[in-house]
Design a protein around this nucleic acid. Sequence first.
DNA 1: AGAAATAGGTAGATCGGTCTACATAGTTGT
DNA 2: ACAACTATGTAGACCGATCTACCTATTTCT
Lengths: 187, 187
Amino acid sequence: MKVRERLLKAAAELFYRDGVGATGIDAITARAGVAKMSLYNNFSSKADLVDAYIQGRHDEWMELYRERLSHATTPRERVLAVFDSYVDHAACAYEWGFRGCGLLNAAAELPMGGPGRASVAAQKEEAERLFREHLRDIRPSAGTAVDEAAEHLSFLLEGAMARAGLDGHDASLKKARKIAISILDKL
Amino acid sequence: MKVRERLLKAAAELFYRDGVGATGIDAITARAGVAKMSLYNNFSSKADLVDAYIQGRHDEWMELYRERLSHATTPRERVLAVFDSYVDHAACAYEWGFRGCGLLNAAAELPMGGPGRASVAAQKEEAERLFREHLRDIRPSAGTAVDEAAEHLSFLLEGAMARAGLDGHDASLKKARKIAISILDKL
DNA sequence: AGAAATAGGTAGATCGGTCTACATAGTTGT
DNA sequence: ACAACTATGTAGACCGATCTACCTATTTCT
């Protein structure tokens, strides 16, 4: 594994487990088994590494979602695939101790105007957009009702993830999935 | 205003705006207009101050909720009072720049086993408990349906707060309140 | 008088970031 | 074939700044 990948992997683990601010450069390079200069040969700064971490988590989730999507046959299953991808991502984090959505946790530490928060916001908007598209396949005639339902599902999912992070397990996420099913039933 | 209150007020502003880890004690004492030693005369450590900050935010929210509750006449209005108290708390934060739920943001920075995370989790459980009690007044006969609806509302509310924090305004919270009304209609 | 708060400094660690000196491996020129 | 060059990485010292926490001597308030 190349140096840059080792750095990203080590940073991802430590940023998620201990937080961005609490993780020092030395801890990252030590865990990656890499010289400190190698970090600055691959990233211009710690902030740059943080941005790469956020982008990496987004890509990681998208891959999990696409995998779920490929096995979904109905629009309803495609809606639930978003929930399942969140559960899958939570399962990935179990080995380091589940602490909720890494993107939301990182955003909580980032300053208001920065690119990191914007990336996290974009991921949440994308999840809502996926809901909206699949819901439109279920009820093509509905207009703003679909938009509201997509927002509803997004809030439900993100709230369950926040609660799950506090609890340290994904039970809330699975309950939210059940609630989502009953929402789809009433749609 | 006494020294301890000035410290708590300054800490609350800086912890919320910049995050817990990024805020040094010098910044807190400077903003409070207080000597550095006064901090350690009133709090045993920064971690102790952080715990007091979390407790203070919880109390602050509870007061806003009780104020809303005192003007609610029906169980349905008491359910919505929880949403309104969140909107009220968000409005308090506008002068420093709204960044979402201060408790969730703080929890994102706190280690897993500590008392801070437990306090935050307890606040979220309390909000869900309030939902559950008021819902039970609406539908006393229902059993697990009420529990599920309370969880549903909790996830909806927390998710909307998370999204609102990323957006920097409380529009999502107000949309979640509308969705909550339609949930109550279908109950 | 006595308690509480003040200003300011100190200790010791850690932070992000830079720098030098050296090792290794692959490529190039002759 | 063999030396020279380049790219990449390592180990570790080093920088100024900042961090938490504690200490002392002085002033303020009741």
